[in-house]
Amino acid sequence: MADKTLQNDKSHPVRRFIEALPFSKALQMEMEEMADGRAVISMPYSKDLVGDPATGVIHGGAVSALMDTCGGAAVMSHPQVTAATATLDLRIDYMRPATPGERITARAHCYNVTRSVAFVRAEAFDEDQTRPVAAATGAFTVAGG
């Protein structure tokens, strides 16, 4: 069962850490859920993030940043992790362009934690929640390893 303290507590250190990152602020990322190694973070559509002016599609780097931040939040919310984390490796497969004008939401799950590395899977969706925009797998540091 999800830890409701993490999910609903606006002052929780993990939530404060993610929401205080200048890059997260610049992309207007919003923490929607976070508990027990899972996180959901969304980002609104912005013309400032468009990678192709002809189509209005968001740049893949913005999607990548969203998924990376969400993966880090999932790691930091895992019960076995007690400190901040850093990305060691992140592989992203872009499935399709995000629909212009639509909010993008990333969902990440930290599914395994070793002494020094945490492993994450993530997906990003626009308003079509049935077809991912991108999928990712990543490895993140675990303090003390």
Rank of each mutant, 00 (worst) to 15 (best):
S77W: 01
A135Y: 08
L27W: 01
G61C: 13
M31H: 05
M95V: 15
P100V: 02
Q129P: 00
A54K: 13
E127T: 14
S77M: 05
S24Y: 05
K10V: 14
Q28N: 14
A84C: 06
A26Y: 11
D93I: 10
T141M: 12
C110K: 03
D9Y: 05
M29E: 09
Y45V: 05
M34Q: 12
E127S: 11
T99F: 02
G61A: 13
A84I: 07
S42L: 02
E30L: 06
N8G: 04
C70L: 04
M34P: 00
V14M: 03
K47Q: 14
E19N: 11
A2K: 04
A135D: 01
S46H: 08
P97F: 07
I104F: 07
V120Y: 02
K25A: 09
K10F: 10
A118Y: 08
A54E: 15
D93M: 08
I18S: 04
R96A: 04
I41V: 12
Q80E: 14
V14N: 05
V142R: 04
A65L: 06
S77C: 03
V113Q: 03
T55C: 12
H12T: 01
G138P: 01
M43S: 09
K47F: 13
D3H: 11
G51P: 03
S42N: 11
D126R: 09
A74W: 02
K25S: 09
D52F: 11
T87D: 02
K4D: 12
M1E: 11
E33H: 15
Y45S: 01
A122Q: 09
A84T: 15
E127R: 15
V57S: 04
P100N: 07
R96T: 06
R38P: 00
D68P: 01
S64A: 15
S116P: 00
V40T: 14
V40I: 14
G51A: 06
E123M: 11
A124N: 08
P53C: 10
S116Y: 07
K25Y: 03
A35S: 14
D93F: 03
D89Q: 14
G72D: 06
E33I: 07
G138T: 06
E33S: 09
